[in-house]
């Protein structure tokens, strides 16, 4: 089918306008953070101040600890169980898979009350584990689906060859299957990372101590302090978002793969 040139130009311009419209909130935030509080000029002072602001480093480190532990726990648990479900025969296999999948449909908000009680009983308020454990429990199903689908397509011949060479299940899993699953593991890690990094409700409930707050609580924390200094607040939002945006631009392709491959074939 041939598409006339003027139609292509028209479609391009419409999409360009749409893209600019999509960028507008970001541009507006940047504009507010650069605008000088006095007069009409622009200044970097808000951004500099945001970079060295009290507490932000701590929030960042807290988020890193929680998020990286969640990623490790989810990737570990999900790859082990995905491999067992995909390749090993055991009684109750489909029951395990079905019930883990059911978690995929659990709304976070409906489990907030019991998680609150669990953490209260175990004294896990203002403790990294209080977030790591529920994030992992809720994060495993998505990882499981992606990894199981990948293991299902893993060539059996390779494993059979390893069996003939005398390798046991552990060796096959750790030195044959895992090293060949890097691309799927990356997809899983990136999505788990993003979900844990941006999670808000449970962090709000369990991290009341300022020294334990995660980065997703930082905007509200500073909003309370700088509610009347818009430029300062917006500068903080810019500084908070830059690492995530850099992360996004660096790993965009794996993220897209997560959307297109994993979700669809689940």
């Amino acid at each position: 089918m041939r598409i006339p040139r003027h139609v292509i130009v028209l479609v391009r311009s419409v999409l360009l306008v749409l893209a600019l419209l999509w960028l507008l909130p970001g541009a507006y935030t940047l504009f507010l953070s650069l605008r000088s509080d006095v007069g009409n000029g622009f200044t970097l002072s808000n951004l500099w101040a945001a970079l060295s602001i009290q507490g932000l480093g701590r929030f960042f480190v807290n988020s890193l600890v929680v998020t990286l532990s969640t990623v490790a726990l989810v990737t570990g648990c999900a790859s082990l169980s995905a491999y067992a479900i995909s390749r090993l025969s055991f009684r109750g296999r489909s029951l395990v898979y079905a019930s883990l999948l059911l978690t995929l449909m659990m709304p976070f908000t409906a489990l907030a009350v019991p998680f609150f009680i669990i953490n209260k009983t175990l004294h896990l308020f203002n403790n990294y584990l209080g977030l790591i454990l529920p994030y992992s429990a809720l994060g495993i199903p998505f990882a499981l689906v992606i990894l199981k689908n990948f293991f299902d397509t893993f060539p059996r011949e390779l494993e059979e060859a390893a069996i003939i060479d005398g390798a046991g299940v552990f060796r096959i899993f750790f030195s044959l299957v895992l090293p060949n699953s890097i691309s799927s593991l990356t997809v899983v890690m990136i999505w788990t990372f993003l979900n844990a990094w941006n999670e808000f409700l449970l962090a709000l409930l369990f991290m009341s101590d300022n020294s334990m707050k995660t980065i997703s609580l930082a905007p509200l924390f500073y909003e309370g302090v700088y509610c009347n200094v818009v430029g300062r607040l917006m500068a903080i939002l810019v500084v908070i978002s830059i690492p995530v945006l850099v992360f996004y631009l660096a790993l965009q392709q794996q993220l897209e793969k997560g959307v297109q491959g994993g979700a669809l074939k689940g």
Binding site: A78, A84, S89, S99, L102, T103, L133, I140, F170
Partner: peptide, 19 residues
């Protein structure tokens, strides 16, 4: 079968304990 249960145990424990 034994290895399989070992493999699914961590995920299942988190599932039982939290969900």
């Amino acid at each position: 079968q034994g290895v399989a249960y070992l493999f699914v145990a961590p995920a299942t424990l988190l599932f039982l304990g939290f969900i």
